[in-house]
């Protein structure tokens, strides 16, 4: 280990923190613009050229607004709620590889902060902690909408975590690894035919619905349904704390999209070998934004589902498909191993 190793890690942490925060705000702009155009509106177009600085203006506005705490709230829980939501999500970015290795002469730089062997497990563990921030925020607000929002959020997130975890088991079995970088390398063959979305399409549908439910995007936005719950669990939040909740939501969506690209879309791999002159990180970003586009597109189209439909979809549709997928992959691997064929 070289002497400058800690500085490189520190630099990576800073770059990822800034990059993720910036991407979260770009996503907000992207979201508002795309949603506007899909509804025959213009979207933000006043602040800066084509409204590009709208997110910045919103952020500044939220940060300088008064931070009110309701009189009858649980002040301690109210304050730590946003932090409990945002910290696990930012920590989880530590195991996400954003590109293939960069080599500068003899030195090889891994574009991942922590290249751990249990990366996927860490992502799942940390994101499941986010629900505590949501529940605490809603409960501590001492507000009926906040509490109902947090109840819905806890039930929804915990339910969908089950199928989300189940859907990635097939990928993990195929890749033989929980390391996110190894999972990407397991899909490498030169074309997109070996990406796990081709071999694990039902699992991808479950995973995609799961990430939309986890980040509370429509049609799974029951925790913050405007027409029913005003804003859900963060209805009493204002100023900087509300800003943290918003940042956490958009960063969570970004994290899940990154993980989805790594698990199912071959991460930084080009779809055709002929396109490999484009650097890997560009492929990664392009795939991430294609998925974000799809999430917003779906959210702009489908109406919010009812609560019983949400649970029915999870427990009666996705769970059986996930379990069947798990057994099919297991049987396939066993048969292939007994025949001596590589999978």
């Amino acid at each position: 280990m070289e002497w400058y190793y800690p500085f490189i890690v520190l630099a990576k942490v800073v770059i990822v923190l800034i990059g993720v925060s910036l991407a979260a705000y770009i996503n907000v702009y992207f979201f508002r613009k795309e949603l506007g155009r899909m509804q025959s509106r213009m979207g933000p177009n006043r602040v800066g050229p084509e409204g590009l600085l709208q997110s910045l203006a919103d952020a500044v506005k939220m940060l300088i607004k008064e931070d009110t705490i309701p009189a009858d709230s649980d002040r301690l829980l109210f304050k730590i709620g946003p932090a409990l939501l945002i910290i696990p999500i930012f920590v989880a970015f530590a195991v996400v590889p954003f590109s293939n290795d960069w080599s500068f002469g003899q030195t090889v730089l891994h574009p991942v902060i922590s290249n751990t062997n249990v990366g996927l497990l860490i992502v799942l563990a940390l994101t499941s902690m986010g629900v505590y921030g949501v529940v605490m925020g809603g409960w501590a607000s001492n507000n009926k909408y906040g509490m109902m929002g947090s109840l819905r959020a806890s039930a929804q997130m915990i339910s969908y975590e089950v199928t989300l975890g189940l859907s990635v088991i097939g990928v993990v079995m195929l890749a033989h690894s929980l390391n996110l970088g190894d999972i990407v390398e397991g899909q490498a063959s030169g074309t997109f035919a070996t990406w796990y979305i081709v071999r694990q399409f039902p699992a991808f549908i479950i995973f995609f619905a799961g990430i939309m439910a986890e980040s509370a995007r429509p049609p799974f936005d029951l925790p913050e349904a405007e027409s029913e719950l005003v804003a859900g669990y963060h209805v009493e939040y204002s100023g900087a704390r509300f800003f943290i909740y918003q940042t956490a939501e958009w960063s969570a969506m970004l994290l899940w999209v990154c993980v989805a690209v790594i698990l199912f879309f071959g991460g930084w791999l080009p779809p055709f070998g002929a396109l490999s002159f484009i650097p890997g990180w560009l492929w990664f970003i392009a795939k991430c934004y294609a998925l974000i586009f799809t999430i917003i597109w779906v959210g702009a189209t489908w109406p919010r589902i009812r609560y019983d439909e949400l649970m029915t979809l999870n427990w009666k549709v996705f769970l059986p498909i996930g379990i069947a997928n798990f057994f099919i992959v297991a049987a396939w691997k066993t048969i292939a191993a007994s025949l001596g064929v590589g999978v």
Binding site: R37, M38, Q39, R41, M42, W297, V298, T301
Partner: peptide
């Protein structure tokens, strides 16, 4: 019907907005 809805919103994306500034 879900896929039909997606087509409608995708077509809207390339239609000029009806807003008058």
């Amino acid at each position: 019907p879900m896929i039909d809805g997606l087509k409608v919103t995708f077509d809207n994306l390339f239609r000029p907005p009806t807003t008058i500034q």
